[in-house]
Design a binder for these strands. Structure first.
Lengths: 196, 196
DNA sequence: GTCTATAGGCAGATAGAC
DNA sequence: GTCTATCTGCCTATAGAC
């Protein structure tokens, strides 16, 4: 009962639009690209874009929704695949490293900067993304206390907030240098502080 | 031999333009405001704005220049006024807290997000700002080893990079919540990790 | 679903009067 | 220095043919 002949990746126009728009948001910001940019890259017209996403705000909502879903999936996979909390945290940092390695900023970090200019639905989605990350991190930190792979003195929630802030900031500051080194330095110090 | 009757603050039109534009960059981003926004707020026309700053790129350059100069002054004042490295670091974090308390993002953090869309002169200025901050931090960290008010294992440069990243990220993530609490949590954890 | 054509608005920017 | 008037271009968005 397959709806389509695709293997796993969805090549529909809507998905290809999201792919291009996603890269543009992550590199230039939501206010830094236009429908014309996407259309030109895909070889279609802006009118076609409006068929799939009637307004830019709708495109924005779809972008965060898909991004957050993927990220959520990655977190669950980390939970399933890795045993100790220390390894989970390292894998979490690697998620960010992968994004930066693709010359991109975290989508929600980028949108956090532009927050004041965003339509309301996008704002709520950004908040939810951060909330989910903090919750997941706090859980991993609790685990780390139990399995003794992590050491820290402050409350889980504060440390979780610190980790999220540090990784988002590390991407933000490293971006302009076009170099992974500053990011890696920061991650090294961060993880060192959480080991005995 | 006073050039003007002002007390200390410069109320010239150019300065008032910079004041408004500065707030707009820090809250909405460089791509998130227009000459019309500034003009409306000051009760002048956009043509007048172009008299003072011929192009938006020129305004942008002036904005970073003034911001970086002020920040640099604040760092030197910290060096003069405070004795131990621990206190200097706390004062440094307070600089960021003050910006966030004014419902703003660090200007260069904001511009780092928009980096790809910026004219070249603004890009270099953003890089220089971060460089100066890292250098200053590394110096304070060295001091902290000597006066024994700071403890850390990683190289000064890496820790400096980590501090800068953490503070920028803490502002970025806290912004959307309109609340100082997440920022303060992060700073608390950060400073705790640098104390014995 | 994709196109052509176009509307309507706002962007950054300039000329020239006062 | 500040204005009015205007230009050009780009932006989001829509109508309607294919």
């Amino acid at each position: 009962m397959m709806a389509r002949t695709r293997t796993s990746r969805d090549d529909s126009t809507a998905e290809r639009i999201l792919d291009v728009a996603e890269r543009l948001v992550q590199t230039r910001g939501f206010n830094g690209f236009s429908y014309a940019d996407i259309a030109a890259e895909l070889g279609i017209t802006t009118a076609s874009l409006h068929y799939h996403f009637p307004a830019k705000a709708a495109l924005g909502r779809a972008l965060i929704a898909r991004y957050a879903e993927r990220f959520s999936g990655a977190l669950h996979r980390i939970d399933q695949d890795l045993a100790d909390a220390r390894a989970k945290l390292a894998a979490y940092a690697d998620l960010y490293a992968g994004v930066l390695g693709g010359k991109r900023m975290c989508m929600c970090g980028m949108l956090a900067a532009e927050y004041e200019t965003l339509p309301q639905p996008m704002r709520s989605a950004v908040i939810r993304f951060f909330d989910e990350n903090r919750t997941w991190l706090a859980h991993v930190l609790s685990e780390g206390l139990q399995d003794k792979t992590l050491t820290f003195a402050s409350p889980e929630e504060e440390v979780a907030q610190g980790i999220l802030s540090t990784l988002e900031g590390a991407m933000l500051v490293a971006g302009p240098y076009g170099d992974m080194a500053p990011f890696k330095s920061t991650v090294r110090v961060l993880l060192a502080n959480l080991s005995s």
